[in-house]
Design a protein around this nucleic acid. Structure first.
Lengths: 121, 121
DNA sequence: TAAAACACCGATTAACAGTCGGTTTATGGA
DNA sequence: TCCATAAACCGACTGTTAATCGGTGTTTTA
């Protein structure tokens, strides 16, 4: 997560760059960062491109997309096809923060619809 | 999950009861069911009560509540405090199923509000 | 009171994240 | 051209957790 956070915040970087930002604070070796980058790459969460002899990594999914995937996984394991329960959970969670979030959620739905209509015209 | 599914569908049961329902199909021993029940109990997902010398287990959370918790976990690990991103992800996921789910989501928000207002009066 | 039923503990396997060391390979400068 | 360095790559170890089961001891009950 720390690596992803960093790349989300700062764009493309090589292992060295990520290491100099995170390594000291987290007391982690360069190799640890490197392995983490490789594993994220294998999971297709990062893309990489060889510049000279070092890879430059960048994220393949943004934070919201990753969150969506993870929530999707949860929904799949726990309530196969019970999308209504899923929607109810969304409302619960939003309301749990505070009720204003329900308004905001409605607003986002409207925005989504508006956006969709523009794109399809 | 299979154990939880069973208890959600059939109410209270002891290990034996769950075993006779799931054991044969899944080719799983009585002990496996028992361990699973114990672990779920330790996680506070099940409650139990000793009847004679056997425990009767029942679920402490329903499916939607469990889903909420798991989604909450995802949101916490991936987007600390970025609730707006979370809400956007909800809309995305709902819309991804199909657009009717956006209507349904709005409906659930209304229902939630109506419910809340009744309870607070 | 002995057999059956059950709880409980420990053990094994498999997966995975986090971490790192060692080895190989490729680069670029002397 | 050759070597020092940087980086990739591979394997390993630890810790955690789920899934699975056996063994042991305890409680019922016939």
């Amino acid at each position: 997560m720390a690596v992803l956070e960093y790349l989300w915040a700062h764009g493309e970087f090589d292992a060295k760059g990520v290491y100099s930002a995170l390594g000291t604070t987290r007391r982690i070796s360069h190799n640890t960062i490197q392995s983490t980058l490789e594993r994220l790459f294998k999971k297709k969460l990062l893309a990489r491109q060889k510049i000279s002899h070092a890879y430059i990594y960048k994220t393949l999914v943004d934070r919201d997309e990753l969150m969506s995937r993870m929530i999707d996984d949860v929904v799949k394991t726990i309530s196969k096809n019970n999308t209504d329960g899923m929607l109810a959970a969304f409302v619960d969670i939003a309301a749990r923060v505070d009720d204003a979030h329900l308004d905001r959620l409605e607003q986002l739905i409207s925005e989504y619809r508006a956006n969709r209509d523009i794109e399809s015209s």
